Each structure stands twice: as C-alpha cells, then as structure tokens.
Computed example of a mutant assay.
Amino acid sequence: MLPNHGRYAYHPWPERPRYAWPGGAKLAVYLGVNLEHFAYGEGLGAELAPGANSGGGPQPDVLNYAWRDYGNRVGAWRLLELLDALRLPATVLLNSALYDYAPQLVAAHRARGDEIAGHGRTNSERQSLLDEAGERALIEESTAAIARHEGKPPRGWLSPWIAESRTTPDLLAEAGYGYTLNWCMDDQPVWMATRAGRLLAIPYPQEVNDIPAVIARKDGAEQFAAMVLADFEERLEQVARDAIPQVMGIALHPYIIGQPYRLRALRGALAAIAARREEVWITTAGAILDHVGGLPEGMVP
C-alpha cells in the first residue's frame, strides 16, 4: 500500500448522489480574488521575469516587486469596477498584511458584501516550512486580523502558495474554519477528516487560474479568457447530461489579470457567464459551505 493522507476516501464520479444548488442549479460558480502583499527585498513572489527567486539576480528585486505591487495599487481597483458592472460577488482570499498596507482596498470589497477568507499573512512565506507551533501561530494571527477588521472570523482558508504541512487541515479545523480551498482533487465539495472533526474541501482551480496559466504556461490574455469560457460551457453541458452538481472556481490575481489588456479579454468571458445567471448559481465559497451543511447526511462525499 502506498502512503495515504487518510483525509478522504475515493468516490467514483458516476456514483455520486444527485443534489441541486439553490434555485435548482447544477453548476455553482465563484470567483476567488487573491489580494496579496509581498515583502520588499526578501521572501517569495511570482516573477514576471527571472529574478532573485530564480537565481536571476540579487535582492532587492525591484522589477518583480513593483509588478506585483501594481495589483494592489491599480489592478485590483479595475477588477472591482468590472465586478460591479457585471454584478458579480467574490470570495476575497486575503493576506492579512493588506490591512496595514492597503486598508482602503479591503474596505472596498467589504462595502460590496464580498466574503473575506483567510490567505495567510503574506505570500512571501510558506506555512508548510514552519513547525506545528509556528504554523498554528500564523493561522491564528491571520484569523485574528480578519476577525478584528470584519467583525467576524473567516470561515475559509487558502494557504499562501497552497502549501500545507501534514497537520494543516487539523490546525484549520481547530481554529474554527469550515472549509479549505487547498485541495484541488474534485469538481464537488468533499468532506475531509481532521482530528477536530470535518473540514469541507471546496474546489479551487489550478487550471482556470491566472498564475499557472499566464506565469507558468505563458498563456496570452485571449487564451486565458477563452479557457474560462470553455470551462464554463463544458461544465454546463456535463451537468445537463449527468445531473451531477459541480463547482467551478475562477482564480484571479489583480497584478496579473488587472493588466488592462488581460482585463479586457476577461471582461468578455465573465459577461458571458453573468448572462447565464438564471441557469447557474453565481455565489461565494462561504455560501457553498452553507448549502452543503444543510444537505442530508451522505449527499456529499
């Protein structure tokens, strides 16, 4: 037997129970907007061009730091305008360092009623490199900051760089979290076992995600937008055919998608999705957790 995580069992897709999202929809769609802040002159960070993290030069890596900072200064605000125009909600995956760096940006999402989920302190660090006490402290610090500013703690978590230790799901459940976005193994929510009870794994995309698409695969703006729309249209056909409910997430990072030419391409894809809102459930990850929690036992693997 190969080593196994023991968090969930295998469930064949055709044998899944049939249930519906609110309004009888079979497809739930949510936007995961990553608001991230990075340390200057040290730590991790995505790279537009080879920099210090990839051995291309010493710190401070001004080119890549400034490119990432564009997202919070400009790109995120343009993305907000687009979301408002299309009346689309968002789940904000928040580095808690943003409360100190760009509080107005978080306030703008708060004013829209967007869900604020935990995304660590900063994407300059990986929680998987910490010991258990250090990882617990990271989760507690990020959670406390969100609770202090939003008036309630977050219910969902996405680790910076989707990095987990072997105890991350346990620590999240112990901290009061209801769902995680770290595990991208399914198109449905799946209950995971932890030492503190169940934790819901809600699908978060590693394909329809601008970082692996644009940064890793070097996809162009139109190619990424076409990917979003093709994913949506294929899922609509699948749920119509087999009636098995699905979750489609779209992962967006303002320093990438907030560039004007990329935003222009994305606008068309999101407008096409918004135009089908009578057929699908456009929602947040937290609302998916609420709906799953109200389903009969055994409906969700």
Rank of each mutant, 00 (worst) to 15 (best):
R16P: 08
E150L: 08
G176K: 05
G258A: 06
G220E: 10
Q259M: 07
L229V: 13
F224D: 04
W157D: 03
R87W: 06
L93P: 01
R112L: 05
A25H: 07
L82E: 07
Q206V: 11
Y177Q: 03
V208N: 08
W77D: 05
W183C: 08
A9R: 13
D84L: 04
A9W: 10
L295G: 01
A265Q: 12
R112Y: 05
P103R: 06
D186M: 09
E36C: 01
P296S: 09
A49N: 15
Q104R: 06
I282M: 10
L158Q: 08
S128Q: 13
D61R: 08
P254C: 06
V92G: 09
Y8F: 12
D187W: 01
P296E: 03
T122S: 12
A274M: 01
R241T: 11
L80M: 13
L171I: 11
L158P: 00
A226H: 08
A85I: 10
R198D: 09
Y204D: 03
P203G: 03
A28Y: 03
N72Y: 00
E115R: 10
L138H: 09
G151T: 04
R267D: 04
L83R: 00
Q206R: 14
Q246V: 00
P17I: 05
A137Q: 15
L27Y: 02
G32C: 11
A175R: 00
L35C: 04
S159Y: 01
Y65E: 10
E222Y: 03
A274D: 01
E140G: 14
A66F: 11
W183I: 13
V300S: 03
Y101M: 09
G23C: 09
H253A: 05
A243K: 15
Q127D: 15
P296F: 08
Y179F: 14
S124D: 05
E36G: 05
A265E: 09
A275F: 13
P3Y: 04
S124Q: 02
L171H: 10
Q188A: 15
L35N: 09
T194D: 02
K152H: 14
W13A: 13
Q259C: 11
V214K: 07
R276W: 05
D69T: 12
V106E: 10
W157V: 05
D186G: 07
G75D: 07
V74E: 14
E164I: 12
V29L: 03
L82R: 03
G41P: 09
T180H: 04
G51E: 04
N182T: 02
L200D: 07
L129D: 12
T168D: 02
S142Y: 03
W161P: 14
E141C: 11
A117K: 06
L270C: 00
V33C: 08
A221H: 03
R198I: 02
A243T: 03
E297Y: 11
L35A: 04
R277H: 08
